[in-house]
Design a protein around this nucleic acid. Structure first.
Lengths: 200, 200, 200, 200
DNA sequence: GATGAATGAGCTTTCATTCAT
DNA sequence: TATGAATGAAAGCTCATTCAT
C-alpha cells in the first residue's frame, strides 16, 4: 500500500512531494473526500508529517493553487513576449492557456474545475489567479487601443475569451472519452472562432 | 426541535420532498458537506426514513441528477420549437443550456464538472446529457444545410459551441466571487461571439 | 475489557449510566485525561452513543455537576427543616454537608475538588451550587438575627464555615491513607470548633 | 518566531529555566493542557531539549513539586521562628500555609488536591508535605503544654486546624470565580475562627 | 548541548448506515 | 410507513516522544 520513495526522490523536497500527491488526489476524488491520511499514505509518510509543512488541510490546498497560478501566469507572459503584434500576442496567449491546462491537467483542475468549499471561493481575486487573468486582459487592451476589436469593453471581451478557452480546456480534460474531433483542430477552431467573433 | 410540516405541506410524495430538500442542500453546501441528517432535519423526518426511498446517499444524488437532466433535454427542445429560424433556434438553445446550468448549478456540477466516484464515470455518454448535446447538433445541422455557417463540419462546430457555453456556464458557477461584468451581458456576449465567429 | 451490563442494569437509564461512569473516571484521572472512548468502554457502548445523550464532553461534565449540586442542596434543606433552633439548623446543615460528601465522594470530588478547565470555572455562581450555598447562608442569617454570633457579617461567616467543612470533607476523601484520628470525632471537632469560634 | 532570550537572560541554568516556564504554564492552564511544545516555545528552545533534562513530562512535574515543597516546610519554619509566643507561632504558621498555597496554586493543587496517576499516590506521606504538617503539630504541642487550648488532644487539634486551612486554601484556588469577600479578610477570619474555637 | 525531522497513539467529533420495533 | 437506538469507520488534528546528527 505504501510506496516509499524517500531515498529515490532525493527526499529533499518533501514539501513539493506532498503538494503533488495532494493535488492528484484532490483532482481524482474531490477535496472533501481526500483525507490527510490518504495523502500521507500515498507518499509513504505519516499524517503528522504533513503538518510539519502545512498549517492544515486548507492551507495545503491554498498553497497548491497559488503555485499553479503563478506557473500559469508566468508561462503566458513568456509566450506573449515572443511577438509584437497585439493580435498575435492575444492568440498565442490563449493557446498557451489551453496548452498549459492540457500539459498540467491536475493543476488546472484543482484551480479551475474542482468545486471547492466556500471558504476558498473568495481567494481567487487576491491570488496569482488574478495575475494570470490580468496578463490576458493587458493584451486585450492593446488590441482595443489599436482598434482591432468590435467593442471597446475590455473587461467584457476578456471574460468572454476566458470563458471560451476555459470551456475547451476543461471539457478536453474532463470528458476524455467523449468522441471529440481531432484535438488540435478543435482547439484551433475554438480560438479562431473566439477571435473572429471578437473582431469586426 | 424541527417543526414538522407534513400536515401543513399536505405533500403526499415524500420521495419528491426528500429529493427537493437534498437538491437544495447539495447546491448550497456541496454534495460532500451535506449529511443525511441535515436532509432529514430539513423535511422533519428521521434520517432512517430516507433509506426507505433511496438505497444510499449516492443513489439519492443519482436520482436527482437523472430527474433534472430529463429537464435539460426537454427544456432545450421546447425552447427551440418556439422558432422556425435555424439560427434563432441555435441561439435560444445555447442560451437555455447556460440558463439551465445556472438554475441547477449542483446538478450541472455533478454531471459536467465534478470528478465523481467511479460508479458514475460512464454516465455521461448514456445519459440525458448526451441527448441534450444531440439536440444542439441537430440544429447546427439545420444551419449548415441552410448555408449559414462558414464551415460545414457539423461535429467541429457543435463541439466548439459546446466548449463555449460550457465555459461560461462553469466559470459562472465555480468562480462565484470573481468580479464578473453583469451576468446576462456576459452570457449574451459569449453566445453572440460564438455565433458571429461561426458564421461568415 | 468491556463489561456489558445492559440487560442487567435494565438498560433504561443509559443516560444516568454514562454520567456515573464519566463521573468516576473524571474523579479518578482528571477531566482532561478521560477520553470519550474510555467512558464508552467502561459502560460497554460505542463512543458515538454518548453523543446521543450529551452534546459534547463539556456538556457531559456540566450535567454531572448540576445533578450533584441539586442533590446536595436538597439534602441540606431536608435536614434543616427538622429543627426550629437556628443554631441547631446550622449545625445539622454543616454536618449534612460533610456526610453528603463522604457518602458521595465521586460526586463531591467532581464539583468541589477536581480542577476543571477554565471554561467551567465561572459556571458555579449560576448553578445549583449557588443554591446549596444560599441554603447555608440563610441559616446563618437567622442566627445573626437572633444575635447568636460574634459578628453580623453574614457573608463572611458563611464563607468561613464553608471553608471549614469543605476542608474536612476533602481531606477525608482525598487523603485516605493519612493517619487520621477517629473520623466522626474529627468531624465533630471541626464543626464544633467552627461554631464555637463563630459565636461570642 | 520565538525571540530567544538565551544570551539576554544570561541564564546558565537551562534546567531551572525549564522548570520556571513549566511551573507558570501549569499554573495558568493546568498540567494536562500544557504541551511540551508550549513549554519549549516559552523559553525559545526546541521540545527535544527538555528531554535532555527531564525523563518525561511527569518527571518535570515531579521535580517542580519537590522543589517547591521544600520551600513550604522551610517557609513555615522560618516564619515561626520570628516569635516566641506559641500562639503567635501557631497563627503565623497557619497563615503562611495559606499564603504559600495561594502563591503556588499549581503545586498546591498537585499535592493536596488533584487526583494523580498512581505513580504519585504515596508521595504525600513521604514528602516534604508531611514535614510541613509535623512542623505545625509541634507548635500545637507547645500550645498544649502552655495550657492555651481547651483540649489536650494534639493530634485532634492539629488535624482540625489542617482541615480548616486546607479548606480555605483549596476553595480560594479552585473556585476563583466565586464571589468571595475580600480575600485577606476571609483568610484572617478563617484562621481567627479556628484559633478562637480551639481555645477556651 | 541542542535540534529538525518524523511518528504512533490518541484525541473529539461526525458520518452513513443498520436493526429491532 | 416510520423511527429511536446504536455503531464501525473515519475524519482533522495534537501530543509526547524518539532518533540521527
Amino acid at each position: 500500500m505504501v510506496s516509499r520513495n524517500r531515498q529515490e526522490s532525493g527526499k529533499e523536497n518533501l514539501r513539493q512531494e506532498i503538494m503533488d500527491a495532494a493535488r492528484e488526489l484532490f483532482v481524482a476524488e474531490g477535496y472533501a473526500s481526500v483525507s490527510m491520511r490518504k495523502i500521507a499514505d500515498k507518499i509513504g509518510y505519516s499524517p503528522t508529517t504533513i503538518y510539519l509543512y502545512f498549517r492544515d488541510k486548507s492551507d495545503l490546498l491554498h498553497q497548491i493553487c497559488e503555485q499553479t497560478f503563478a506557473h500559469l501566469a508566468q508561462n503566458i507572459k513568456s509566450i506573449q513576449q515572443l511577438s509584437d503584434n497585439p493580435l498575435e500576442k492575444l492568440r498565442s496567449g490563449l493557446r498557451e492557456y489551453v496548452h498549459f491546462g492540457l500539459k498540467n491537467p491536475s493543476q488546472y483542475e484543482i484551480v479551475f474545475i474542482t468545486p471547492l468549499p466556500h471558504q476558498f471561493e473568495s481567494d481567487f481575486s487576491e491570488s496569482n489567479g488574478k495575475v494570470a487573468f490580468d496578463t490576458m486582459r493587458d493584451v486585450v487592451t492593446e488590441c482595443v487601443l489599436d482598434n482591432l476589436l468590435k467593442t471597446k469593453d475590455v473587461e467584457l471581451i476578456s471574460q468572454t475569451l476566458w470563458a471560451g478557452i476555459h470551456g475547451i480546456t476543461s471539457i478536453l480534460i474532463k470528458h476524455e472519452h467523449f468522441p471529440f474531433v481531432e484535438r488540435d483542430k478543435l482547439i484551433d477552431n475554438v480560438i479562431e472562432t473566439l477571435i473572429a467573433g471578437t473582431r469586426a
